[in-house]
Design a binder for these strands. Structure first.
Lengths: 150, 150
DNA sequence: CACGAGTTGCAAACGATTTGCAATTGGCGA
DNA sequence: TCGCCAATTGCAAATCGTTTGCAACTCGTG
């Protein structure tokens, strides 16, 4: 039920965005601080444009949002979602959080709910055994209409 | 193991692309015929540009491929895949075929293998029960490196 | 407090996809 | 079988999301 243990523990593997960024000799600039703030506040994954519009007016350029999000994704602080409508969406991943999570996405407001367990792993093993594929991973997303949107 | 029964049966719900198109007062034009031919020949999902390039030289315009694919998708003859690299991919769905299938996708050559069973349904029921979401569907894709690419 | 690597804004470039419009064509009815 | 008309196509331009080059700017360390 708790398939992935967080590999937290060592002192150097600390907690705040500041530290997480500096770990890679990256700067916690004003723009990045605001972007993180926006992402932490929202539970649903946001497009770059949405993030941009939610920033304190004109806080930074849209291109900066794109660049920051890309950086944050590489650092594993943000997860990317591609639902098939024109643009990608991004959601904050709390430190120590498991990047491998499945989600329940509201098709109306895009709000997402995390699904804690990963039962698919068992199915994945079966697929691997039958297919001769290597390095198999999977992606699982549930879609529906959340209570608020019904 | 065979979760979805095809609702074939009535005469009018026949088989060939020609019929499937005319059913909607759509025409089976030369371009569409060729596009279908290309899709049926390939097992992996193709991008619009790939389809265009596989057509008998200069058979039609790229815009026509886009428009045709869109039509075929609406008619349920083609399934759309969005893997997150810049462009969408499309694969042929044989008549009576279940559009609700999960796939194992080679991350190297994009070849796909269908996974016949849908064990996730059970998990889906659990998710529905816990979340109060309505009209829940899901998408499940496995990724890996196929034998030929290893 | 000054310096330099890392960032940002701006505008232009890019690739995927869509669209307007005039010319063309498939399919149905006469 | 022939002709008509709605459906379709080609072409080029427009859109949209995303990326990038470059000069100006800023965070964080020495």
């Amino acid at each position: 039920m708790q398939p992935v243990a967080s590999n937290r523990g060592s002192e150097s593997d600390a907690c705040c965005p500041h530290t997480r960024l500096r770990r890679e000799s990256k700067k916690l600039t004003g723009a990045r601080r605001e972007i993180l703030r926006v992402l932490e506040k929202e539970s649903r994954p946001l497009t770059n444009k949405e993030i941009f519009q939610l920033l304190p007016q004109g806080r930074c350029d849209l291109a900066t949002v794109y660049r920051s999000i890309q950086l944050l994704e590489e650092l594993g602080m943000v997860k990317k979602f591609v639902f098939g409508d024109g643009s990608a969406r991004f959601a904050f991943i709390s430190e120590g959080g498991d990047a491998h999570r499945h989600h329940l996405v509201c098709t109306s407001c895009q709000k997402i709910v995390e699904i804690g367990e990963c039962i698919v792993r068992e199915l994945e093993e079966r697929v691997v055994a039958r297919s001769n594929f290597k390095a198999v991973t999977h992606r699982l997303e549930f879609f529906g209409v959340c209570p608020a949107c019904q």
